[in-house]
Computed example of a mutant assay.
Amino acid sequence: MRTLAYTGLRWGELIALRVRDVDLARRRLDVRRAFADLAGKLVEGTPKSHQSRTVPLPPSLCEKLVVVLDGRDRDALVFTSPKGGRCG
């Protein structure tokens, strides 16, 4: 995924992003949580560093995310499986 390549997020951080974590006006992602695989089950927790951080978004990703986020609930996951469920 382009988002991983251009932001440096870890996979677990990416799949835990919620719509409310994306600020397109400021071109920033707020990384507040991450999913971790514990015994074959995804568990939501803090990022690896246990601290939230803000990551810049390049304009080209903002253009793509506008379409992805349009009309979605603020608590919805940004990236989902083809069937709409959690990735991973």
Rank of each mutant, 00 (worst) to 15 (best):
M1W: 14
M1K: 14
M1S: 15
R2V: 14
R2Q: 15
R2N: 15
T3C: 14
L4P: 09
L4D: 10
L4Q: 11
A5D: 10
A5W: 08
Y6I: 01
Y6M: 07
T7C: 06
T7A: 04
G8C: 06
G8L: 01
R10Q: 13
G12P: 13
G12N: 10
E13I: 08
E13D: 05
E13C: 06
L14H: 00
I15Q: 14
I15C: 10
L17S: 07
L17R: 04
L17G: 07
R18A: 06
V19E: 02
R20P: 02
R20Y: 00
R20K: 06
R20F: 00
D21V: 03
D21Y: 05
V22N: 04
V22A: 05
D23Y: 09
L24P: 12
L24R: 13
L24M: 13
A25C: 05
A25P: 07
A25L: 12
A25V: 12
R26N: 14
R26L: 10
R27Y: 08
R27L: 12
R27G: 11
R27A: 15
R28D: 00
L29G: 02
D30T: 10
D30L: 06
D30S: 13
D30A: 15
D30P: 00
V31Y: 08
R33C: 02
R33D: 08
A34T: 10
F35N: 01
F35S: 00
A36V: 15
D37C: 01
D37R: 14
L38P: 04
L38Q: 15
K41I: 04
K41G: 10
K41T: 15
L42W: 12
V43D: 03
V43H: 07
E44A: 11
E44L: 15
E44I: 15
G45L: 09
G45T: 10
P47R: 02
K48N: 07
S49M: 01
S49D: 02
H50M: 10
R53D: 13
R53V: 07
T54R: 13
T54H: 10
P56W: 02
P56S: 01
P56D: 06
L57S: 09
L57N: 10
L57D: 09
P59T: 06
S60K: 14
L61T: 06
L61V: 12
L61Y: 10
C62Y: 01
E63H: 11
K64T: 08
K64D: 13
K64G: 02
K64R: 13
L65Y: 10
V66Q: 14
V67W: 03
V68D: 11
V68R: 13
L69K: 05
L69N: 09
D70M: 07
D70A: 11
D70P: 05
G71A: 08
G71V: 05
D73Q: 09
D73P: 07
R74H: 01
R74W: 04
D75W: 00
A76G: 02
A76D: 15
A76R: 01
L77K: 01
F79R: 00
F79G: 03
F79S: 00
T80C: 12
T80H: 08
T80V: 11
T80E: 06
P82Y: 01
K83A: 13
G84R: 00
G85P: 02
G85E: 05
G85F: 06
G85H: 08
R86G: 04
C87F: 05
C87V: 09
G88E: 01
